[in-house]
Design a protein around this nucleic acid. Structure first.
Lengths: 139, 139
DNA sequence: TCTTGACTGAGAGTAACTCTAATTTTTATA
DNA sequence: TATAAAAATTAGAGTTACTCTCAGTCAAGA
């Protein structure tokens, strides 16, 4: 049985967030000690894992709550759960694609600045000077 | 010259966000028409592009403002700008790695649900029943 | 002329944390 | 055993980055 702090450390999430998620109804099975302390078991950890997965993938808390509730209802909700997971996967792939594209731009800028530093060049533009658009662009 | 709406459409960002960013000082060069309407030129679009890139990469607005201000100062700030870009790139690569890991879990769940649906199986668990942890995990 | 649609700023509302404070519990040490 | 430090609890305030609403301005077409 794990306390909030232990879960937080294990899953690399802040304690605040774990409590916030618990209050949001994301962990319907967690027990409390006689003195009111939350106790997560390994099954609860699986729920933390899937909630974290959905959050990282950008799913809204409201939608996560829906998914949790569907799980609690049982069999009949499998198609909707499937659909949530499937859409989330597609969205995540799109997200990765977008991040990958942005990395190209970041690498371009990185190389641009590196070149300036290594060759002791001027930055080619300073707002005090009046210069053409072409010169301005690489900032 | 482009209005806020045109920039929003072109860059796939909401008009609200463009105005919010403008108010945050992210576009120091945009002009206004005599009737006070914002007019972006192609150079301003480059700034929108880099701001979008940094935001997508998860850089905070405060840090983006710092980057913008460094650009305005000129030459002497190239090393700090390089460092911001470089750290952002590393963070983004980490982020992609995390998303890629989560996709594995999503694909596992997707296959799990698909199997249930295609073979008309039971969900193997319904909270009404008392069952073992092992059976509970796949939800 | 009238209305429609795009623009404006101010400011309220929202999501998802994130932090603080007051209080209670647990644990380690004297 | 006493006690002090560490860790848990809750309620609620604060933060970030939008996101939306609204009242008002302005140009262009029926």
């Amino acid at each position: 049985m794990y306390t909030v702090k232990e879960v937080a450390d294990k899953m690399n999430i802040s304690e605040h967030t774990i409590r916030f998620w618990a209050k949001s109804g994301f962990f319907p099975f967690i027990k409390r000690s006689e003195t009111n302390i939350r106790l997560f078991d390994d099954h609860d950890l699986e729920w933390v894992k899937i909630v974290k997965c959905l959050r990282v993938a950008g799913v809204e808390n409201k939608e996560i709550k829906r998914y949790i509730d569907l799980c609690l209802i049982g069999d009949s909700t499998v198609p909707e759960r499937y659909s949530i997971i499937q859409k989330t996967k597609e969205k995540t792939k799109e997200h990765i694609k977008e991040l990958t594209e942005q990395i190209s731009l970041l690498e371009y800028k990185e190389a641009f600045y590196k070149n300036i530093m290594e060759n002791n060049l001027k930055d080619s533009w300073n707002p005090i000077n009046n210069i053409t658009i072409e010169e301005k662009i690489n900032l």
